[in-house]
């Protein structure tokens, strides 16, 4: 048990703080929602009712989609794009998909390589892109979920103000949808770019996200 906790502490820690933050969002989100309801003279929602409301689901999904988009872009962009001096970048002569030998696929697979790395054909192609495929699928599904619950939340608001509801097709071109979407994207893109660039000169001793403290500023693709 102790060994399991130690070997999985990173995944467990983030899983735990995710659940705590989601719980906190539900409590605070409900309070804010009910304040708004009060000013409109509408009914208050219990916590269970708020948890199945379109408002809560939209707030959760708009953040999910942007996080998974961020990682999808980072995974794919760093195949081709470089940043001199950054531990987040590959070495400057390694841009691109690299050779089968470098990537240990097909006949270059090692004894302990995953079977789909060795087998070749479609399965190796799929497996070679499986991380981006997974992050991309989660991004698209959470963005879809944001739009579906978003139009419902938007229409509930419209009806409470005696305004006409709109269709999903209208909603995905609406100011509300793109305002929610882009306000999340801009912060993710800034944070990722900042991480790639600040790590040229700044260090965190012991972190694999940083270069070793004593690494030269123009050392690229070195992780601590």
């Amino acid at each position: 048990m102790r060994r399991f906790l130690r070997e999985h502490s990173l995944g467990l820690f983030f899983g735990l703080i995710f659940l705590l933050a989601l719980f906190g969002q539900a409590i605070a989100g409900r309070a804010e929602f009910n304040n708004h309801q009060l000013t409109q003279g509408l009914a208050q929602l219990s916590l269970p009712s708020y948890l199945v409301s379109a408002d809560f689901v939209t707030d959760v999904m708009e953040n999910w989609q942007s996080e998974f988009l961020q990682f999808l872009l980072y995974i794919v962009a760093t195949v081709w794009l470089l940043q001199r001096g950054s531990p987040e970048s590959k070495e400057l002569d390694k841009a691109g998909l690299e050779s089968d030998e470098d990537q240990k696929v097909g006949k270059y697979a090692a004894d302990d390589s995953p079977p789909w790395a060795r087998v070749g054909g479609l399965r190796t192609t799929i497996y070679s892109n499986s991380l981006a495929l997974a992050m991309g699928t989660i991004f698209l599904l959470s963005w879809l979920a944001q739009s579906i619950s978003g139009v419902t939340a938007y229409n509930e608001d419209q009806l409470s103000q005696l305004q006409a509801p709109i269709s999903w097709a209208s909603y995905i071109t609406s100011a509300d949808f793109w305002s929610r979407t882009l306000q999340n994207w801009q912060s993710e893109f800034l944070a990722v770019g900042t991480m790639a660039v600040l790590s040229i000169y700044l260090r965190q001793r012991g972190s694999p996200e940083s270069k070793p403290v004593g690494s030269a500023h123009d050392a690229t693709g070195v992780e601590g």
Partner: peptide, 30 residues
């Protein structure tokens, strides 16, 4: 190694499934 991988995938699938079901059900007049 595999339990954590599976747990994360299940969690995310449940979250996405929940969100889509709630969104669709509410949208259909729930």
């Amino acid at each position: 190694v595999r339990p954590m991988f599976t747990a994360y995938l299940i969690f995310i699938a449940l979250g996405l499934g929940y969100a889509i079901v709630i969104g669709v059900a509410r949208g259909l007049g729930g």
